[in-house]
Design a protein around this nucleic acid. Structure first.
Length: 269
DNA sequence: AATTGAATCAACCGCGTGAGA
DNA sequence: ATCTCACGCGGTTGATTCAAT
């Protein structure tokens, strides 16, 4: 028992067979919730031992944080959340837990999964690396403005302000606890976004601020080879429903044309 | 209806870090 | 100053679900 208590991260052989792995049962969940309500969400090895769960402290912690915690949010990632993820990832890279701090109720695991499944899929679609300049430019100049458009479009004037008016230069007023507020951040749709990023410009693209893309054409050229008004719905981007203007394939070729014209040979229908 | 491949997500693993002895 | 331990983070895996054929 002492050995087990000393190092739950490297169990001995006998302990190994005693440690449960895999999906949690409802009973286990109930036990864990009960113990956390008594002991608090710390000292995970202690909770694991004293609860009688044959789980490691690590496993208990993960289950609590990602699933059982009362304030955990489930369901689809909203457009605003997608925007935040893109924005914050462009600042901090794969700092999932840090990004998660700005998305109340979302876990680092969920955000990480979102990035890997949705965002990296788009990179694959574009046949480029997720860290490549092409992909970053696509994100900055097409997808993010497009998300802003969609966020504004879905905002009812009576219930929600357009994005432009949600951006404030006053970082001194925290909206939600326990979102940490860092100097230089601004509020965007009840979230805080680094102010410098909202007005950041790309070296080879037109100035691009949130207000620049208000309900408008993105990426300066605004060229829509199909003579239409938008860039499609990017269904793979988690945008379901709506009236698709472009197919994924058309979007792909458009983006390819924008950023890798030398490699593109195609014709639009 | 059955099969297969892709997508999704919960959970595990290894490593780094910080606190305390 | 060093060691041990617990915790947290990011990467990865594997089971399940979904969609296409």
């Amino acid at each position: 028992m002492e050995d087990y208590e000393r190092n739950s991260n490297s169990p001995t052989h006998e302990e190994d067979s005693d440690v449960r792995k895999g999906p949690w049962t409802e009973d286990e969940d109930a036990i864990l919730v009960n113990f956390v309500s008594i002991h608090g969400d710390a000292r995970w090895n202690h909770i694991a031992r004293s609860s009688g769960l044959k789980r490691t402290g690590k496993s208990c912690r993960l289950r609590w944080l990602n699933y059982l915690r009362p304030d955990v949010r489930r369901g689809n990632i909203t457009l605003e959340e997608q925007f935040m993820i893109l924005k914050l990832h462009s600042l901090w890279g794969n700092r999932w837990s840090k990004i998660a701090q700005y998305l109340p109720g979302r876990t680092d695991n969920e955000i990480k999964n979102y990035w890997r499944t949705r965002v990296q899929k788009q990179a694959k679609h574009l046949r480029c690396d997720v860290n490549s300049n092409l992909f970053k430019e696509t994100m900055r100049n097409v997808w993010m403005p497009r998300l802003v458009e969609r966020i504004n479009a879905q905002s009812s004037p009576t219930t929600c302000n357009p994005v432009e008016s949600m951006v404030t230069t006053d970082p001194g007023q925290p909206i939600r606890e326990p979102i940490p507020l860092e100097p230089g951040f601004v509020q965007f749709n009840q979230q805080f976004v680094p102010a410098s990023e909202l007005s950041a410009t790309s070296s080879n693209s037109p100035a691009e601020t949130l207000s620049d893309v208000q309900g408008g054409v993105v990426n300066g050229s605004g060229s829509d080879p199909a003579g239409q008004t938008g860039f499609g719905e990017f269904n793979d981007w988690g945008c379901v429903g709506g009236d698709n203007i472009w197919t994924d394939e058309e979007s792909f070729w458009f983006l390819q044309d924008q950023f890798c014209p030398e490699t593109t040979s195609y014709s639009y229908n």
